[in-house]
């Protein structure tokens, strides 16, 4: 079932498989029969006009939709062939495997160190204080933030600049060693320089993680992603290699959107 959409899967391993995913918010049919494969160690961009369901789909992957009263998800989503909507699946474990970075940088109102250490602490990833410190330092280094904050790890995370806060949130997410990182418009609250840094970081993180990023910026999708999926009115219109989507889309709607005819 891993390559049922008929594409060659020669080099790339499939990480996430979504089949016939529907999401309802009370009466509203927010996501309609979405089938999507996400390849491992690639950046997949989800694009589309506001309200098209791309964030909804993203939040299906770590079951954050469970938190919304009246939300209902049907269909199957599997990560490494394991269905994440099984009844006895532990959502806590799932969210440790699937990290998330939000639109607005949201560090906890705690110190920089405690922000990154929080995940490892609740999941018991570090046996000793030294191990914990190592995890924090490694995570901050991977998020490209360590050099900037190494002298003030005990200062408040909320005192950093917007771009630094977002990279802190990325460090916090990778500190629990997730396999997949979901990013919901991670740069929409950042200035262009901070955006460039985060984009660069996303590209580096691809080595170790599977990344799915929702974005409103088509330039960003083109810059950071290998695969792009275009959503419209709750349906997945088209998915393909980013280059192909942006140069030679199969669907008229995709073409209309990327050329700016609507959005």
């Amino acid at each position: 079932m891993s390559n049922s959409d008929g594409e060659p899967v020669a080099s790339a391993k499939i990480k996430v498989v979504a089949r016939d995913v529907n999401v309802f918010y009370s009466d509203k049919h927010a996501l309609k029969a979405v089938n999507l494969d996400v390849r491992a160690n690639e950046v997949t961009a989800l694009i589309g006009p506001s309200g098209c369901g791309k964030s909804t789909f993203l939040r299906c992957l770590n079951r954050m939709n469970d938190l919304i009263d009246g939300a209902r998800v049907t269909g199957t989503i599997a990560i490494d062939q394991q269905d994440i909507y099984l009844k006895d699946l532990d959502v806590v474990q799932l969210r440790a495997r699937v990290g998330m970075v939000f639109q607005k940088p949201n560090p906890f109102p705690k110190s920089i160190f405690d922000n990154v250490a929080y995940g490892p602490r609740i999941h018991g990833l570090a046996g000793t204080g030294a191990e914990l410190e190592e995890i924090v330092v490694t995570s901050l280094k991977r998020a490209g933030l360590f050099e900037e904050v190494k002298d003030r790890l005990n200062e408040a995370g909320t005192g950093l600049s917007g771009g630094q806060q977002q990279r802190l949130c990325i460090a916090r997410a990778i500190a629990v060693s997730p396999e997949v990182i979901l990013m919901d418009e991670p740069c929409s609250a950042l200035d262009p320089i901070a955006t460039a840094k985060v984009e660069e970081l996303i590209d580096e993180l691809r080595q170790n993680y599977t990344i799915i990023v929702v974005t409103h910026s088509m330039q960003q999708a083109a810059r950071v992603s290998q695969r792009t999926a275009f959503f419209h009115l709750g349906e997945l219109v088209e998915v393909g290699d980013t280059e192909q989507i942006f140069t030679n889309p199969n669907h008229k709607l995709t073409q209309g959107y990327i050329t700016g005819r609507f959005g």
């Binding site: 440790a96 990290g99 906890f108 929080y118 995940g119 609740i122 997410a173």
Partner: peptide, 21 residues
Amino acid sequence: PWVREAALALGASRLQMVTHH
């Protein structure tokens, strides 16, 4: 609400989310 989302997305249980954050 983002405090709750941030905690839950890291895999905190509801009780941890409440008591820690």
